[in-house]
Amino acid sequence: MAEQTKPFDSKLQAAALLLPTIVVLVAFLYYPSLETFRLSLFESAFLGQDLRWTGISNFVELATSSTYRNSFVVSVLFAGVVVIGTLVLSLLISYMLFDVDLGSSSYLVAAIWPYALPPAVAAILLNFLLHPNLGIFTHYLELLTPWTLDWFNSGPQAFAVLAIVAIWKQLGYNIIFMVAALNNIPETLTESAQLDGVGRLKMLYKVYVPLISPTLIFLVVMNTIYSFFSTFPLVDLMTSGGPSGATNLLIFKLYRDAFEFSNYGLASAESVILFVLVAILMYIQLRATEGHAQYGG
């Protein structure tokens, strides 16, 4: 350890090699972020050509807007449902995939496949499958259960359908990580439990979940980000935020404010709030689970 070889001849060379990355980060991440923050303090008109300093009035307007507050509540609820639903479902599916002896790779491909589908394609396909009048899924659901599917008009139904689609879309991503984490658990632990006669469910929540907790925490954070930011195409193509704001997620609302109503200042303020909200949530998640995660041993 005494002698460390220097990877670079000079600091200048190191800086030169870092430059392309820094340029990309600055151009596409830091500059837009700062510009968004700056824009949130202005009122804009004519596609942002005409800017007028208004201070925090954009934020005040949002705080007092009932549409915005509704959108905020809907987004947080939606994130909660999607994060928990995705984790629970993928955990169960992953556990079954991990447990199965025969043909596990074909099951794995089947489980991961939805993730490989572009969100827009998935949204349009599911729109057909779940269409209240034409959907083949709707047909059988109504045939076999007393329910009627009318999510074009019913707010709660639209919310549920959107959440299910969002969960379905995110399962693959979670399953890849969970199966990998489960497969990393030494097989002898499973065998030892088999000899002791430990039940499978007990094994899952007493042994496997604690052992893959680092992966689960990572997935909670990634799913949170996903549910706030990456569900835009689903909302846009399936519900357009309706009916009457029931699925009007923050990310969708800010898009409309910016590009339909050309209110860049207001949309920027919404962006800032969304960013701060997700950042706070991630901070809480990481702090709350600190010390609980099992990192090897």
Binding site: P186, T188, E191, S192, V207, P210, L211, Q294, G296, G297
Partner: peptide
């Protein structure tokens, strides 16, 4: 087992 198979948590 050779690796003892103790539950690390």
């Amino acid at each position: 087992f050779q690796n003892y198979a103790l539950y690390p948590h």
